[in-house]
Deep mutational scan, measured.
Amino acid sequence: FSITQFVRNLGLEHLMDIFEREQITLRVLVEMGHKELKEIGINAYGHREKLIKGVERLI
């Protein structure tokens, strides 16, 4: 299971460039909250919320 699959499953594949540029893996994403996601350029609250909720389902 990769970050690419995870992001695609959430319908947020347009954010993949950010994850690749910042070298974010699923392991790193698990540790990130709204503040960190915003810092790397994910400005939409809804997108950040989707990512965080998606990660919570993985754990």
Rank of each mutant, 00 (worst) to 15 (best):
F1D: 10
S2T: 15
S2W: 08
S2G: 13
I3E: 00
I3L: 14
I3C: 04
I3G: 01
T4I: 12
T4H: 14
Q5D: 15
Q5W: 09
F6T: 01
V7M: 12
V7N: 00
V7P: 00
R8L: 09
R8H: 11
R8S: 11
N9R: 13
L10G: 02
G11E: 06
G11H: 08
G11Q: 08
G11Y: 05
E13W: 10
E13H: 09
E13Y: 11
H14L: 11
H14I: 12
M16N: 08
M16C: 09
M16G: 08
M16D: 05
D17V: 14
D17S: 13
D17R: 11
D17F: 15
I18H: 05
I18W: 03
F19A: 01
F19C: 03
F19I: 06
E20W: 09
E20I: 14
R21H: 06
R21K: 11
E22K: 13
Q23L: 07
Q23C: 10
Q23E: 08
I24F: 04
I24H: 02
I24M: 07
T25Y: 04
T25M: 04
L26T: 03
R27T: 12
R27E: 11
R27V: 09
V28L: 12
V28T: 13
V28N: 13
V28K: 15
V28M: 15
L29E: 00
L29P: 00
L29N: 00
V30P: 05
V30G: 10
V30D: 02
E31A: 14
E31V: 13
E31H: 15
E31R: 15
G33F: 03
G33P: 01
H34N: 03
H34A: 03
H34Q: 03
K35N: 10
K35V: 08
K35Q: 10
E36Y: 04
E36I: 04
E36N: 04
E36M: 05
L37K: 00
L37M: 08
L37Y: 05
K38R: 10
K38Q: 12
K38F: 09
K38N: 07
K38I: 13
E39S: 12
I40Y: 04
I40T: 02
I40R: 04
I40W: 04
G41R: 03
I42L: 05
I42K: 04
I42G: 01
I42F: 04
N43M: 14
A44V: 12
A44H: 15
Y45E: 09
Y45N: 07
Y45H: 12
Y45T: 07
G46Y: 15
H47E: 15
H47Q: 14
H47C: 12
H47F: 08
R48F: 06
R48M: 06
R48T: 03
R48C: 08
R48H: 02
E49Q: 12
E49R: 11
K50H: 06
K50I: 13
L51H: 05
L51Q: 01
L51K: 01
I52Q: 02
K53N: 09
K53V: 08
K53W: 10
K53D: 06
V55E: 00
R57I: 11
R57F: 10
R57H: 11
L58M: 12
I59H: 09
